[in-house]
């Protein structure tokens, strides 16, 4: 794993609070599970119909009937449960999931999210992402701050088709943490040696800077 991704995951795992129900998206978010401290009592929800994802199985315990939403073989933790897909999304839409951590392609300054299609490329489908961003109590997006060309993925308006409008609560990148509030996007933290100036340089959307961050940065 690149250090960039490692850094994002290390920061994202701090969002996971003891005693909560958490849904992790496919890809980089799934890896967060490996970093959750063992003393935290967390139930991971998998939208294919499992509450309480356990670790990957030992070779002899691999079970084709027990997979996560990424179609990987998993185990079930003690106290876990199985259910059908309608029930699974009733949990999501009904507001029973405390936190969802998903990947992103673009996020706008208003907290719009695009993470499911690139026009002109083969469209694979949105899976459960559109339901999850509308239903989870808190939606945290993790993504690299810029694309391969070095352009900002945090846009004034998303250019890609949306997954949801104004659905992002918090955005974590390799450089910064932003919150989305009724008055706009707020820079909460700078990460991994970046400073406010660098973040401004690589962020297309406009944002304000959290008072506590100004105090911290000012002292440096």
């Amino acid at each position: 794993m690149s250090s960039q991704r490692e850094n994002i995951i290390q920061r994202a795992v701090k969002e996971v609070e003891d005693g909560t129900i958490v849904n992790l998206g496919i890809g980089m978010p799934t890896m967060i599970a490996n970093y959750i401290p063992a003393d935290k009592d967390i139930f991971l929800h998998s939208e294919n119909g499992l509450l309480g994802i356990g670790p990957y199985p030992e070779e002899e315990d691999v079970d084709a009937d027990l997979i996560n939403a990424g179609k990987e073989t998993v185990t079930v933790k003690q106290g876990g449960s199985f259910f059908d897909n309608a029930e699974s999304f009733a949990m999501i839409r009904g507001g029973h999931i405390d936190l969802a951590i998903l990947g992103g392609m673009e996020v706008s300054g208003q907290g719009d999210l695009a993470n499911w299609m690139i026009p002109g490329k083969m469209v694979k489908g949105m899976g459960g992402a559109m339901d999850i961003v509308q239903g989870a109590k808190k939606v945290v997006i993790i993504m690299t701050h810029t694309n391969k060309e070095g352009e900002s993925k945090i846009r004034t308006e998303c250019a890609l088709p949306l997954t949801g409008e104004k659905v992002v609560s918090r955005l974590i990148t390799d450089m910064a943490v932003f919150d989305f509030t009724p008055s706009g996007m707020v820079l909460k933290e700078v990460l991994n040696g970046a400073d406010v100036k660098t973040v401004e340089q690589y962020t297309e959307a406009s944002f304000t800077i959290d008072e506590a961050l100004i105090d911290r940065e000012g002292k440096q």
Binding site: E47, D84, N85, A86, S88, F89, I92, R93, M126, G127, G128, A129, M130, D131, I132, Q134, G135
Partner: peptide, 23 residues
């Protein structure tokens, strides 16, 4: 969307012609 798909099928079996969702 997956949850909408599941609910549309559920509704089909349950005799509900349609439903509203923010998804």
């Amino acid at each position: 969307p997956q949850g909408t798909l599941a609910e549309r099928i559920r509704a089909g079996g349950a005799g509900i012609p349609g439903f509203y969702t923010p998804t």
